[in-house]
Amino acid sequence: MNNAFNNLIIYNGYPLSVVVAVVFHTLILSFLIWLQSNNSLDSLELVQPTIIKALFIDENPQVTNQRNQERQRLERIDRERIEREQEQQRQQSETDREAERERQRQEERERSALREREELERQRAIDLQRDRDQAEEQRRLEQTEAEQRRIEEEAERRRQQEVSEAAAINAARNEFELVQSATAVIQQAVQQVWNRPPSARNGMRAVLQIRMLPTGELVEARITDSSGDPAFDRSAENAVYSAAPFTELQSLPINIFNGNFRTLSLIFQPEDLLN
């Protein structure tokens, strides 16, 4: 009977209601969670901001240092080559002189042989001459030996120089890597906070010179080369000021900091604009 059913519902409706309410809430919660887990996949792509691609070239003293070193090395090699040639020339002339002397001695010997027959008294003098010749020979031998030793020493010195040069290059490369990573850090920090004004156009270019302390604090940022748009310049300046301090620079060795980061030039250049 319909009425009986109604009666049952009215006075025993609570369990049913509780079940319905709990089921309803569970459904809503799981729906929310499902929705979010689905959304997070989509939002991964949405979150990607439009890429702010700022070309960021620092006029790195490191590079000039390296260039200088390379040039010095080349000069040194040149100089050594010239020295070597001079040495060879000297040796050549010496041997020439030697040959000349040999020839003279030969003649002298011939002359003395002629004279021997004529003048026996001069025998002793000839003996003396021979003794002198021997001494000469001895001296020459010694001289060539010394020459040999000198050449060997030269080679040794050169080898050592090469080794130290390689070490220097290695150190320079390490330094270069450090500088590059620190530069990348600064670049990223600045890029993240750089808000370009609406007036920014492709091809604009502003150069900022910044001075920093070894703690990474920014002392001064100065526009050395304006883009021609004051808003753009100001945005670049603001970006640098709000990205500072660059605490990552604290970990750099002080000599590298002094050499590269005391003053740094940053170039701001929008590249991805459509206009």
Binding site: I9, I10, G13, Y14, L16, S17, V18, V20, A21, V22, F24, H25
Partner: peptide, 15 residues
């Protein structure tokens, strides 16, 4: 509160 109010909503609806 939400659960209890929904219990009451359903129960009152039946009543």
């Amino acid at each position: 509160l939400s659960i209890v109010s929904w219990v009451i909503i359903v129960q009152r609806w039946l009543v």
